[in-house]
Design a binder for these strands. Sequence first.
RNA 1: CGGGGCGUAGCACAGCCUGGUAGUGCGCUCGGUUUGGGACCGAGAGGCCGCAAGUUCGAAUCUUGCCGCCCCGACCA
Length: 490
Amino acid sequence: MSKGLPKRSENYSEWYNEIVKRADLAENSAVRGCMVIKPYGFAIWEKMQRALDDMFKATGHQNAYFPLFVPKSFLEKEEEHAEGFAKECAVVTHYRLKANPDGKGLIVDPNAKLEEELIIRPTSETIIWNTYKNWIQSWRDLPLLINQWCNVVRWEMRTRLFLRTAEFLWQEGHTAHATKQEAIEETERMLGVYATFVEEWMGVPVLQGAKTPNERFAGAEDTLCIEALMQDGKALQAGTSHFLGQNFGKSFDVKFVNKENQLEHPWATSWGVSTRLMGALIMAHSDDQGLVLPPKLAPIQVVIIPIYKTPKDLATISEKVNPIFEELKAAGISVKYDDAEHQRSGWKFAEYELRGVPIRLGLGMRDLESGTVEVARRDTLSKESRPLEGITAYVKTLLDEIQANIYQKALAFREENTHLIDTWDDFKSQIEKGGFIMAHWDGTSETEEKIKEETKATIRCIPFNSTEEAGKCIYSGKESPKRVVFARAY
RNA sequence: CGGGGCGUAGCACAGCCUGGUAGUGCGCUCGGUUUGGGACCGAGAGGCCGCAAGUUCGAAUCUUGCCGCCCCGACCA
């Protein structure tokens, strides 16, 4: 077996792919562009789902489920939305196969052509707003705060595990409100939920801001986003929250009677995060030894590995480990005791590092004599010998420390790789080196397009919290009121 | 859709140019020695060499066609 991973600094893509594969997270499937998420990878996703779902519930949302298929006529109703998604839709045209009259196998039965084609949802605004027409009549029905966990299909030309796959898992929130102000607040609130989740659970710092009109969601009046910086200096859009105005309300003829007894279209939002977050998690923290997981999302937070020579020694160690194992479990820590005999301890060390387990406890005969245990941290790769006494409390504290440290490390990386740039020459040379570039922009789509053409850099967002500061556009030299964030992106 | 590359054991690949018994490493099975950072030795099992046609006494190897996959572009809320 090849032991080392490719070096992160030498070939970032290969390094990423190897981690996904070797840490047993996912693999390419028989279907082009689609991904198989393996049990270990899915366990991480489930932890993300649970944390997010709790946050959605805490902000008053309920889960529901809508169909996989969207009639083509629905997709057509909102013009910009239709145009934005048309190029990447999988289309169902028939509902039956039959035996091939010319030989083996099956063919599409030409008599089973659908009267109207069905699109496999690339996102669910249309089918959901078609349903909301029946759900919303009065201001008393609002706000309608719904979330759905599901899969969507976008027929991408080129795919990458977790970052861009033809089918992916996500959640999409779809809300309807009586006033514009309320909908805008909801858009902002949910972006805040995403930012909190990504920073506090995933340990990945994000910039919050608004997309430029060019980069907006098709059919939205405003798109807010969180942007994270990966270790190769490229940006990754980690989540989006859209203010949809009354566009879908109008397109699907959804109306409600307000308190003044007047008919009005409701105001809408939609927001989503996907399995792409798994890609962000991998790329933000991992190193040349493999995956590094934040304790809050690690399926196994602590692994205990016995170090022994004879079966008798193993039995002695196991006897000592059992109460510790139970104590850790009782403290709410997800712990695994790996006493498998067909692998040696050194092999296990490497394996759990590759899988990103935050803490490893190593226990051998020497430790039993001295009443100690070897504690190894995944984030710093450091090891220390600790007294066995009080180890549960220590581990609990250490998990919190690792969670914080991972975030701090990522934050420091982002700060080191965020640059204020004021000249076009500096811009061009810095973009090659990667990172976020804070620069002035004249606010026009033409300039944005030109910069993209010449440098492959896009405006990741117009950040919320940047200070007002007059300046000149990096490209056109025209007046600009504040800096925006540029980067090359995934 | 354009440009390039690759299909040989579960995985990663060599062999092909110059046709002649199907190879290597990892993994797997068995035995022994090992065991505080991915152990070592020995013995084994495992193949329609992507599919099809052609050339030839003989094809993994040469020719043609087909199929599939990967990479780089185009595309990507």
